[in-house]
């Protein structure tokens, strides 16, 4: 799949933002006043910034409001609803904390639940697609949620929780990569089933429909060079997991924590780039891609 920068920025930043807001909503002794203001500001800038960047890949962004209508069937529509409910309820919750030092706990819990629901619905946009076997698994959602709450814990300064969750998320990520490499083969979809010609003999793509590229080849037949894939996985896991863990284990200092956060975000962004770049869409079979 084509790793569009807008989508990578969206899933990385909004995942982190909703993770932070989740912890702020759950907090039994939340910050108040200016401290609360800055925490919520960071959460909202990340979450809304991510959502805004996701509209950049739309062909018709001016109609984006229509995406709220199909929550009965569409995960994308459900995501839109969850995000709005989370942001509105936590906005009111933040209003209480910042201006009135009032802790409206129930509103915070509601917001926290919908923060998780937003990240989950985002992940389901990908995990629901049978056409991309690498994504079509429950572990895709588990990984998205794990990175989100781990990053949120890190940003909100919960050192112990962050340590545990970052290791869990990193472990999930490694396992997801390893299993994901087998999923296209396990799906049973091949050029033989795609063309129905496998009963005659071995099928080979002989001529594509045209000499140039098209929307499908640009959007869905993209695969990164395997040799870089391995290296990028290492880079992602070092930046997203190992560096933050080492920095958190060191004696606490604000500048160390800041480096941990930056390293973590960069690592998750690299992992997200791979999430798209390595994903094989079955339509590539028709174009002679994906052959071993």
């Amino acid at each position: 799949m084509h790793p569009a920068p807008s989508i990578i920025a969206f899933t990385t930043l909004s995942g982190l933002g909703f993770g932070l807001l989740f912890w702020l909503g759950l907090d039994a002794t939340p910050p108040t006043g200016w401290t609360a203001f800055f925490f919520f500001l960071i959460g909202y800038v990340l979450a809304i910034g991510g959502l805004m960047s996701s509209t950049f890949h739309l062909g018709r962004p001016e109609r984006a409001i229509k995406a709220f209508t199909q929550w009965r069937t569409s995960w994308l529509s459900r995501e839109a609803w969850c995000a709005v409910i989370a942001l509105v309820s936590l906005g009111l919750y933040a209003l209480g904390l910042v201006f009135f030092s009032a802790h409206w706990a129930v509103l915070g819990w509601l917001g926290a639940v919908f923060c998780l629901a937003t990240v989950f619905t985002t992940s389901m946009i990908y995990a629901q697609l049978k056409t991309v076997p690498r994504w079509n698994h429950w572990s895709t959602s588990a990984m998205f949620v794990a990175w989100s709450v781990a990053g949120g814990a890190l940003l909100s300064g919960r050192v112990t929780v962050a340590l545990v969750l970052i290791v869990v998320a990193g472990g999930l990520q490694l396992w997801w990569w390893q299993e994901g490499d087998k999923r296209l083969a396990d799906s049973g979809t091949t050029l033989a089933t795609a063309t129905g010609l496998g009963t005659i003999g071995t099928v080979r793509a002989f001529e594509p429909p045209h000499t140039g590229s098209n929307y499908l080849t640009r959007e869905m037949v993209f695969v990164v060079g395997r040799r870089h894939g391995r290296k990028l996985r290492m880079i992602a896991i070092v930046l997203a997991m190992l560096m933050p863990v080492l920095l958190l284990l060191a004696p606490f200092a604000h500048w160390l924590a800041a480096i941990a956060v930056i390293s973590h975000v960069a690592g998750v962004a690299v992992a997200r780039w791979l999430f798209f770049a390595e994903a094989e869409h079955v339509v590539g079979l028709y174009y002679g891609a994906r052959e071993a």
């Binding site: 799949m1 890949h57 739309l58 062909g59 018709r60 962004p61 109609r63 984006a64 229509k66 995406a67 994308l76 946009i125 629901q128 697609l129 049978k130 056409t131 991309v132 979809t189 795609a194 098209n214 929307y215 499908l216 959007e219 869905m220 869409h281 079955v282 339509v283 028709y286």
Partner: peptide
């Protein structure tokens, strides 16, 4: 249509083009 492209991703046959 907002041109999000998700339907093209969901189609295994490459039948939809933005």
């Amino acid at each position: 249509c907002i041109g999000c492209g998700l339907c093209a991703w969901a189609c295994p046959y490459g039948a939809r083009e933005l």
